[in-house]
C-alpha cells in the first residue's frame, strides 16, 4: 500500500545511512564502554587487571563459542533451545573419551562429533517429519539433559551434591591444564569466528542462509530449501557447541549435571545484545555473538563488583542487567519500528 517511495535528496539518504551506521555500531560501542567501566573499577580498586581479564575470558568463552555457531540458526529466524543441553551432553561423552584415551584431540573431536550429531538429529527429524524446529528442540532439551544426567550419575566420581564425572588422573589433568590458557581459548574462538565469518559472508551457503532468514518462501522459490540449509545451520551450531563443550572440559576438568545449564538461554541474550534481530535475515552478523556475549558477561561482572556489599545482590544484579539489556535492545531496534506490534 505504501506505494512507491521516491527518494528525497541524496542528503536525506546520507543522513539515514549515518543513522544506520550509528545504530549498527551501538552494540560495539556498548561493549567498549562496558569494558572501559570495568577496567576503571578494577584499577580504581587496585585489583589485579590481568587476573580479572582472564576471568572474563574464562566466563564468556563457552557462551561465545556456542552463540557464534548458533548465529547460523538464528539467521534462519529459527532458534534452538537445546544448545545448553547439547553442550552438557557432548561434554559428558567427551570427558568419558578423554578419561579413556587421554587424547586432547579426541576430546575435541568427540565433543564436536557428538554435538553435530545432536544437531543433525534435531534438524533432520524436524525436516523429515515437518515439525516446528523450536518444539523439536524443546523435546531435545529434555532428552539430552536426561541422558547426560543418567550417564553422569552412573559414572559419578563426585563427593558433592551434584553427580559429576571428573578427570582425576594427574597426568591427564596436566594435559588439560596445558591448554587451559587464555591464549588457547582466544585462539580457538578466533579460528572458529574466522571460519564462521568466512562461511557466512564469503560462501554461497552463508549468503543463502541469510536470504532464507529474510523470506523462507522466496528462498524456496529460488531453490534454497529450508530443510537443507536448516540442516547446515544446525551443523555449524553443533560445531560451536562441540568447541564450547570441549573448552569447558579443559577449564573445569569435570562435567556435572549442572554444567552449561544456563547457556541455552544466555545465547539468546548474547546474540540480541550483540545487535542482531531475533528474526534473523539480512541483518545477521557473526560478530553479534562475540560482542553480545562479552558485553553480557562484563555487565554482570561490573554489577557484581558494584553491588558486592548489598544484601540479595544476585537478585539486583540480574534485575539491573535485564533492564540494561532491554534498554540497549530498544535503542538498537529504533530504526525498525513498525506500526503494529512485532511478533
Amino acid at each position: 500500500m505504501e506505494e512507491v517511495l521516491k527518494s528525497r535528496s541524496g542528503d536525506a539518504v546520507k543522513k539515514q545511512k549515518v543513522k544506520n551506521i550509528i545504530i549498527m555500531l551501538l552494540p560495539i560501542a556498548a561493549l567498549v564502554v562496558l569494558f572501559a567501566v570495568y577496567v576503571a573499577i578494577i584499577l580504581a580498586n587496585d585489583y589485579n587487571l590481568a587476573i580479572n581479564l582472564e576471568t572474563i575470558v574464562n566466563q564468556a568463552i563457552v557462551l561465545v563459542l556456542v552463540a557464534t555457531g548458533a548465529i547460523f540458526i538464528f539467521t534462519l529466524g529459527s532458534f534452538d533451545i537445546s544448545l545448553g543441553a547439547s553442550t552438557l551432553f557432548s561434554a559428558t561423552v567427551g570427558i568419558l573419551v578423554f578419561n579413556a584415551t587421554g587424547s586432547l584431540l579426541l576430546l575435541f573431536l568427540t565433543c564436536i562429533a557428538v554435538a553435530v550429531a545432536c544437531s543433525l538429529l534435531n534438524s533432520v527429524l524436524s525436516s523429515v517429519f515437518h515439525l516446528p524446529m523450536f518444539v523439536m528442540t524443546v523435546a531435545m532439551l529434555s532428552v539430552l539433559t536426561s541422558i547426560a544426567g543418567t550417564i553422569i550419575t552412573t559414572n559419578s566420581t563426585s563427593a558433592g551434591a551434584n553427580p559429576a564425572i571428573s578427570v582425576s588422573d594427574s597426568v591427564l589433568r596436566d594435559i588439560l591444564g596445558s591448554v587451559d590458557t587464555v591464549w588457547f581459548k582466544v585462539l580457538i574462538l578466533a579460528l572458529f569466528a574466522v571460519v564462521c565469518i568466512f562461511v557466512f559472508n564469503f560462501t554461497k551457503v552463508g549468503r543463502r542462509q541469510k536470504f532464507l532468514g529474510g523470506n523462507p518462501v522466496c528462498a524456496k522459490m529460488t531453490g534454497i530449501p529450508l530443510s537443507v540449509y536448516g540442516i547446515i545451520a544446525f551443523v555449524m551450531a553443533g560445531i560451536g557447541v562441540g568447541l564450547g563443550a570441549a573448552v569447558n572440559v579443559t577449564y573445569t576438568m569435570s562435567v556435572s549435571t549442572g554444567t552449561a545449564s544456563d547457556i541455552g538461554m544466555s545465547v539468546f541474550i548474547a546474540i540480541v545484545f550483540g545487535g542482531m534481530p531475533i528474526s534473523g535475515g539480512a541483518r545477521s552478523r557473526i560478530y553479534a555473538a562475540i560482542v553480545g556475549g562479552f558485553s553480557y558477561i562484563i555487565l554482570n561482572n561490573i554489577l557484581n563488583l558494584l553491588l558486592s556489599s548489598v544484601d540479595g545482590r544476585y537478585g539486583y544484579v540480574q534485575i539491573i542487567s535485564a533492564v540494561l539489556f532491554l534498554a540497549i535492545v530498544y535503542v538498537a531496534s529504533i530504526n525498525y519500528r513498525v506500526k503494529h506490534l512485532p511478533r
Binding site: 587476573i51 580479572n52 582472564e54 576471568t55 574464562n58 566466563q59 563457552v62 551434584n162 559429576a164 571428573s166 569447558n248 577449564y251 573445569t252 576438568m253 569435570s254 562435567v255 556435572s256 549442572g258 554444567t259 552449561a260 545449564s261 544456563d262 561482572n301 557484581n304
Partner: peptide, 12 residues
C-alpha cells in the same frame, strides 16, 4: 550449579 561457576567464582 557446576564446576565452571565454581572456578569462575574463585577467579573473581
Amino acid at each position: 550449579n557446576d564446576s565452571a561457576s565454581e572456578i569462575a567464582a574463585i577467579e573473581q
